[in-house]
Simulated scan of single mutants.
Amino acid sequence: MNTETLKGKLAFLREAEKLKDVLRSGHTSSGRAESTAEHSWRLCLMAMAFAEELAPLDLLKVLKLCVVHDLGEAINGDIPAISQAAHPDKGARERHDLLTLMAPLQPPGEASLGLHGELLALWDEYDAATTPEAQAVKALDKLETMLQHNQGANPADFDYAFNLGYGRKHTGTTPLFSALRELVDADTRRRMAPLRGQGASR
């Protein structure tokens, strides 16, 4: 057991705590702005809830990817899903921020080894989405976002229609994700129905 290594991990965890204060554009069912840490927590819970349907994927790898996928947002925050098309450098920025966050895990002049190397490899795997596990987390990430949009007590001008086109590239990759997509889209349409009625009555 190396004391300096332990100190580095504690320093990293202190920095990662900032993710609890990074707010997203969606709201909880009580109307409070959702944090990125809360989104990542329910993403992990989704992976566990659908573990049987996700077999034979490596569930531990899936959970690690869920935990790491938005970790870089602890530095410069979240770009709302509806605004991401205007930020083509989002991935590069988040990777840079992740490296900043993980600095306490890497002694100066040393290669990316240990936890530092593992976290970076997981983030790169998620970003590239070339493995079945990363593709599953990409799909679940989109579905969790949409689920929260539908469940939240959002502002009156919240754009629920955005859900219907969001993340289709990732949610159509397997029968499971397609089925979940249909269910969540139905929720979106139900959420939109009263808003259409209000528009018609004006």
Rank of each mutant, 00 (worst) to 15 (best):
P80I: 05
E73F: 04
H116W: 07
T130G: 00
A128Y: 04
G91F: 09
E34V: 02
Q148W: 06
P104H: 10
A49Y: 04
E144M: 14
L147V: 06
K169G: 05
T173M: 13
R42V: 15
H69F: 00
L120N: 09
L119Y: 00
P56L: 08
V62G: 02
I82D: 07
A51E: 14
C44N: 03
L71S: 03
A86S: 11
I75D: 03
A139Y: 12
H69W: 06
A92E: 14
N76Y: 09
T130S: 04
A103S: 12
M46N: 07
C66N: 03
L164P: 03
C44H: 04
R95P: 03
A55W: 09
L120G: 02
P175T: 10
S30E: 13
L122H: 09
D157M: 13
E53N: 09
E125N: 07
M48I: 10
D124F: 09
T171A: 08
G117T: 09
E53K: 14
A55V: 13
A81Y: 00
F158P: 05
N163H: 00
A128K: 13
K61A: 12
T174H: 12
A153H: 01
A81P: 02
G172Q: 09
E38D: 07
A153S: 04
L113Y: 11
A136M: 14
Q106Y: 00
G167P: 05
A129E: 15
E38T: 07
I82E: 14
A51Y: 01
E144C: 14
A51G: 01
I75R: 03
A55G: 13
T173C: 06
L101F: 06
I79K: 10
R42G: 05
P104A: 07
L99Q: 10
E34R: 10
E73Q: 15
A81W: 05
L45P: 00
P104E: 10
T174Q: 12
E53C: 02
C44S: 08
V137H: 08
T174P: 11
D89C: 03
P132K: 02
D78Y: 02
G77C: 13
G114L: 09
A47E: 10
K90G: 07
A134S: 13
K142E: 12
V67A: 14
D78K: 01
A121M: 07
T171Y: 11
R93H: 04
D78G: 02
G72R: 03
R95H: 11
L140F: 15
D58S: 07
R93G: 03
L45F: 09
G167T: 06
Y166V: 02
G152N: 05
L101G: 02
K169D: 13
G117Y: 08
G109C: 13
S30A: 12
R32A: 15
R168H: 05
A86C: 01
G31E: 04
S30G: 07
L43H: 09
A129R: 13
T131L: 01
V62C: 12
K169F: 04
L120H: 08
A81R: 06
G117P: 06
A156V: 10
P88I: 06
E110V: 14
A74C: 11
G172R: 04
H170M: 13
H149S: 15
S40R: 07
D70A: 03
F162L: 01
D141T: 13
P107K: 15
P88G: 01
A55F: 14
E133H: 03
V68M: 02
D97E: 12
M46Y: 14
L164C: 01
L119R: 08
P88W: 05
